[in-house]
Each structure stands twice: as C-alpha cells, then as structure tokens.
C-alpha cells in the first residue's frame, strides 16, 4: 500500500519535473516571465484526453497532437503579448492561464466543463498497455528522460546560446542581426509542446481531468519549483520538483485535521519562496537573478 503511494508521488514528481524544465526554457533561458505555462499543461491534457476518448486516437499520435496544439497556442500567446514587457508581459501570460481555465470550464460541449473528463485510457504503446502504476512510473521516467535530454541538448546548442542572449540583452542580439521575436515564439512553442506532454502524462495517469487541475494552485506550485530550482538550470528544476512535491506530503504524517492541510501547504510554499528570495535569490542551481 505504502509503495503504491510512493510510486504515485514519484509519478507526480516526474510530471512536474518535465513541466518545470519546459517552463525553464521560456522563463529561465529565454527570459520570458511566463506565468501562464500551466495553460499549455491543461491544453495538452485536454487535447490528448479528448482525442483518445472521442476520436479513437492512439496514445502516441494523441500526445503529439496535444503538443502541437499547445505549440500553436504558445505561438499565439507570444504574438498577442509581443508588445508587452516585464511585469506587463507576466500579467498578460497570467491572464492567458485564466482565459484557458475559463474555456476549460465553460466550453462544456468540448470539455464537459466542471464535470471533467473521466475514463481517460492508460497509454498503449505498440500493443503494450501501461497498466500498473509501477509500469507507469517507468514509462513517465522514459518520457521525462527524452524530453529533458532534448531540452538539455537544446540549451547547450548554438541555438540555445541565442535564447540565453535574448534574455541577457535582446537589443544587443538584434544588433547581431537576429530576430528576437522569432526566437521568443520558437522558445515558447517548444516549451508549450513539452508542457503539453506533461499534461497528457498526467491525464492518462489519473484518468480524470477537470479544470481545477489547471488553475492558480498549480501555477503556484509550478512557479515555486522553477524559482526554488533556479532559473536557467534544468537540474535545478528536477531537484526542486522532488523537494516541492515531497515537502507537503510530509504533512500527511503529522496529526492534523484535513481542513488545515490545504492551507498549510500554501503556507509552506510561501515560506519556502520567501526564504529562497532572502537567502538564495538564484535558487538551488540557478545562474540568473530573479528580476
């Protein structure tokens, strides 16, 4: 019983590691203060759930389509926020997350609104159904390894340096003849694609999604992971995903009324964020200051 619980936690950690690592591409490496990343996660989860249930898509095409749909929204988000900078850009992207949430909630013919979508099938890969939770852990670890290795190679490549240069000095990079708008939307699209993969992994694991999963609460968790781990550091995101997901789990083993556990989680996250900002403004492994 306890092992099932631990495996469940591990799967959630893996999913959030992918999510945070992909957020780090746009937030940490490219320097776009994107607070709406959770929307891509939701778009991915909804897309692959709807495609597999209603349109009989196999798992792999569904997860890829989910990624592509999220990428299109990533491009769209960059286009509509292209004239915003700094705090305003952050607010614009946060607004995007709320709009996405409102759509999940109100487009009932597509998403069933607050009822959510139950019965999302477990992934089937070349005839093999990933049924048990331990298999699912292995499966998500493989997906995470692929996604994070891809992100790692990307950030270390020549192209990755362009993204980092966009963050350090966008005008300076324009002087070198680079189109920073294009770099920004490309980065956002890749980040959105990877976030959508995390979303699909989540949906097919829990087998039920509803709009509340992709709202403020998870935005806070996700940003806490990215900031605690450090900007522009993939290993930071992974390490922080482990810490931030595990930390509130410990509350389960303390004698505390269930009504208090929720608020205690929030207090813990807030405390952690304040401590990080005070004593380690670059997070665990970050190389860029929070601005």
């Amino acid at each position: 019983m306890i092992s099932t619980y631990l495996i469940h936690i591990a799967i959630i950690i893996v999913i959030f590691a992918i999510l945070a690592a992909s957020l780090n591409l746009s937030l940490g490496y490219t320097g776009m203060i994107n607070l709406g990343h959770i929307a891509f996660y939701g778009i991915g989860a909804y897309s692959s759930a709807i495609l597999t249930i209603r349109h009989d898509f196999a798992f792999i095409p569904a997860i890829i389509c989910g990624g592509l749909i999220a990428s299109v929204f990533g491009w769209f988000l960059t286009v509509i926020t292209s004239r915003l900078k700094g705090d305003y850009f952050a607010l614009g992207t946060l607004g995007f997350a709320f709009v996405a949430y409102a759509v999940f909630l109100n487009w009932t013919s597509l998403t069933r609104g607050p009822l959510g979508i139950p019965g999302i099938p477990r992934p089937e890969i070349f005839g093999y159904v990933v049924r048990s939770t331990s298999d699912y852990l292995t499966f998500s670890l493989i997906v995470a390894a692929i996604v994070i290795t891809f992100l790692w190679l990307l950030t270390r490549s020549r192209y990755g340096k362009l993204l980092e240069a966009t963050r350090d000095d966008a005008v300076g990079l324009q002087m070198l003849g680079k189109n920073i708008f294009r770099l920004k939307y490309q980065s956002m699209m890749v980040a959105a694609f990877c976030a959508a993969i995390a979303g699909s992994l989540y949906g097919h694991y829990i087998s039920f999604i509803d709009p509340s999963t992709f709202y403020l609460n998870d935005i806070v968790i996700l940003l806490t992971i990215a900031i605690v781990g450090g900007l522009a550091s993939l290993r930071g995101s992974i390490a922080a995903a482990i810490i931030i997901i595990l930390l509130p789990e410990m509350l389960r083993f303390v004698n505390m009324p269930p009504s208090m556990i929720g608020p205690m989680r929030q207090i813990l996250y807030a405390l952690l964020l304040i401590l990080i900002l005070m004593f380690r403004p670059r997070g665990l492994f970050g190389k860029v200051d929070l601005e």
Binding site: R158, A165, V171, G172, L173, K178
Partner: peptide
C-alpha cells in the same frame, strides 16, 4: 552584418551570463 558591417554600440553591450567564448561565438552566429 553579412555584407561586412559591424556595430559596437555604446556602453559595452555584452550577454552578461554567457561565457566570454559564447559571447564571441554569437558574433559569428
């Protein structure tokens, strides 16, 4: 840039959290 004109702007514009070598390589990206 491709025609062979380069501009060194005022105030030492560099990409601060990239290494010196990466900064140079960006010039020939």
């Amino acid at each position: 840039l491709e025609k062979g004109i380069a501009f060194v702007s005022q105030g030492r514009v560099n990409f601060s959290t990239l290494s010196v070598e990466d900064n140079l390589r960006l010039g020939a990206h």
